Computed example of a mutant assay.
Amino acid sequence: MQTSYWSRNFILILIGNALLFMVYNMQVPVLPLYGKHLGMSPAQIGIFVGAIMFAALITRLFVPWFSDRFSKKVLLVVGILLYLLAAVGYPLLGSFGLLVFLRLFNGLGHGITTTYFATSAAAELPNDKIGEGMGYFGIGTMVTASLAPLLALDLVHRRGFAVFFLACIGILFAAMLAIFGTSKPTQPAVETVEAAPVFDRQFLPQCGLVFVLGVLMSGVMTFTPIYAEIRHLSVISGFFFVAAIAGVVIRPIVGRTFDHRGPRAILLLNTVLLTAGVLMIAFVDRNWLLLVAGVLYGVADGAIYPTLQAWIFKETTLANRDTATGMFLNSYDLGMGLGAVILGWVVEAVGYQGMFLVLTAVATIYIVLALLLSRHSRELGAA
């Protein structure tokens, strides 16, 4: 009988990652509102929110150097400490420039933690269970993400931004405790003959697709809370909640499907759902329509991202997995960062509804990209 991959290490890494992403997802609906509260323009909000992704991108360029000198455990602790520094500073700094500077520190922590949480989890999994294992790893993220908007928006409305940031600090401390509880990886270390490259052409299909996904996600996550207020809709926390629940439900199915059939069919179906969800947001005028859009968005997000991540893990080796993960996450964060900034300018030019219509056009192109770039992946289905 095959040994279960549900080791103590895997569970603690899953928990630590889930708690870190709970903080991230608590900030998703709140930081745009915080920026608006401080008097930022839509373009400034886009820069403020997107700065984390640019810092994360630069940080991951040094992944091979980090991996050669420090253990993943040490790097995760450092990354969480940088997240903590940002959470402490947000309520204390009021100027746009200082907040963006602090957001860059948050991005350093984000770049480190997202890389090494994912590779630490993958190191605990057998190769023939990568899709399923990373699917369950992602469920931890989605479960906490389902609670994050409800908790975050309720705290802000009832207690204010200061209490919200205190809650973020407490959750980050819990994430650090989980990492302190881990031991050395169960799989043997791999001897590295030479430094792995920062860029590898074989991963361009996955990285291209996750880049566009980042652009789409940045538009939805950054501007839907403000657009919902303008439309006088009261279920923005419900939007993120149902999206997260939909993602939790779909991930085990997606993981098993990937292990048996590869990524192609998953990507095609869910890019269509994503396009429908973004289009629905553009014309939403009822609370229930926003919730339906949340389900479509959540299913697509819960399927596309882990499919692309499992696909890149399937094609890399254990020796260069850190580098491949850094390249993959950099592509996503570049899309998130550029998307938030550029779409902020689009909002100023054509308004919020116009921006979501532009995003719908991008999502439509995404369907074609998924069809073209996943063509050579058919052999992965022969598991």
Rank of each mutant, 00 (worst) to 15 (best):
R158P: 04
L308P: 08
H232S: 09
G214K: 11
S234D: 13
L338N: 06
V368T: 13
G335V: 11
L125P: 15
I58D: 04
G181D: 06
K73D: 09
A195W: 00
L204G: 03
Y305E: 08
L289K: 03
A162K: 14
S331M: 11
L290E: 04
L291Y: 10
V198Q: 08
V30E: 01
T119R: 12
T186I: 12
I52Y: 13
A319S: 14
G16Q: 05
G262W: 07
F239V: 04
I169G: 03
T325R: 02
E124V: 08
P32R: 09
V215M: 13
N25H: 14
V63T: 14
L267E: 03
V100W: 03
F328W: 11
Q2G: 00
I58R: 07
Y352E: 01
A43R: 08
M142T: 08
P42I: 00
M142V: 04
W311F: 09
P205H: 07
M22L: 15
V163G: 06
G89Q: 01
G214C: 12
L38C: 03
P252E: 06
T222S: 10
L296S: 03
G16V: 10
S183E: 15
L82E: 10
L153K: 03
L233F: 02
G351N: 05
V278L: 11
Y116E: 08
R201F: 06
H37R: 12
L338G: 15
F62I: 09
R159E: 13
V346R: 02
P188M: 13
F283K: 11
Y352D: 05
S377V: 01
R103Y: 09
T119A: 07
P32G: 08
V292M: 04
N320W: 11
F356V: 05
V212L: 15
A175D: 09
L334T: 13
S67Y: 11
E194Y: 10
Q187V: 12
L204C: 01
A55L: 13
V362D: 14
V30I: 15
S71L: 02
Y116V: 03
A189L: 13
R286K: 12
V278P: 00
A148L: 07
F199S: 01
W6Y: 06
R159L: 14
I312W: 01
G344S: 00
G160P: 10
G131L: 09
E379S: 12
G219Y: 07
F203H: 03
K72F: 13
D322G: 01
F328M: 10
G111M: 05
M221H: 10
V198S: 05
E379V: 02
A195L: 10
D259M: 04
P32W: 11
R264N: 06
D200V: 12
L150M: 14
V248M: 11
V347N: 00
R103W: 03
F223D: 01
V63C: 09
I112S: 08
A122P: 07
I367S: 07
Q309Y: 06
L329P: 00
D259G: 01
A195K: 15
G214P: 10
Q2F: 03
G79E: 12
